[in-house]
Amino acid sequence: MTARDLIPIAVLTILAALLPLVVTSSPVLNFLVFMLIVALGAQGWNILGGFGGQFSFGHAAFFGTGAYVTAILQLRYGVNAWAGLVLATAAGGVVGWAIGFLSFRSGLRGSYFALVTLAFAEVFRILANAASFTGGAAGLLIKLDVRAANLQFDDRAVFYWLVLAFVAAVLLLTRWIQRSRFGAQLVAVRENEDAAKALGVDSLKVKLRAIALSGAVTALSGCLYAQYFLYIDANIAYGSWISVELLLAPIIGGVGTVFGPVVGALTLHGLGEVAKQFAGRIPGIDLIVFGGVLVLAVAFARGGILGLLERLRDRGRGIMARGPKEVSHAGR
């Protein structure tokens, strides 16, 4: 990776880190933390779905695993919350690898893979809802004990910085993937699996690595969710709402790009909040906005917001290069 690859990530992280110094209202910080948690999970989805082209409709399976593993370890086994975070992330990787092994080895692609992931997430949701080990339908309440050692902070800004640090770390990870052999092979599998195989790419191994990484990152976001709200149940942790959020954000922001998931999560949740402010009495108004944004993105911005910006920039450059006389032609 060169300096040019790293500077945008550094600048964005520093700017975002300064935000709590300006904004101190807790609803806004709450919003930002939640948005970043979704962005982090979406970054996980993007590794597999964006770079690998394997669209998962069931990333809740990893999000929920991260949330439940840390909650259960703390409640039932008295494990430290930081250790829980590490183990939850690892568990997400293992679950990812296992789901990948079962589905990729049998050659599932495209919509079949999407349906199988959806099924896995639903099975996990039903199991977590039924078993007493996971607290059943009542869910799990992580004991409130505000100490940094317990990954609980009395200042929301600290949690914000923590999540931001993880988002930045995954931005770096994604940039590394983009610049590495693994990334090139992953994208090759997305574009044309047979051609990739003919060039010596072990497509099964590449996809398994991608889904394990993806599962780990999304599990981390689930773990942070549990740690921030201190309560989870099956419909939150394994609910299809989170699967949808995690795939919407990259699609809106720019699938298979480094910043796409973050841009998408910010746009979606930003618009959702605005809609709630103006029409808060209509239940589910933010979901209606999500739907509208998705339709617009699919119809007019195939590469998401980042893809659209790039096209506009190229067009702008084209106009500059051709001179003002031909601008009217370029507009058509």
């Binding site: 052999r181 090139a184 092979q185 994208v187 090759a188 997305r190 574009e191 044309n192 047979d194 051609a195 990739a196 003919a198 060039l199 010596g200 790419v201």
Partner: peptide
Amino acid sequence: GRTFQIVQPFAGLTVCENIAVGAYL
């Protein structure tokens, strides 16, 4: 090594990136 009768480019990638996938082997 093989080529395909029906060409199979990685359409979303540049020419250089396409060839690099082979070179990474």
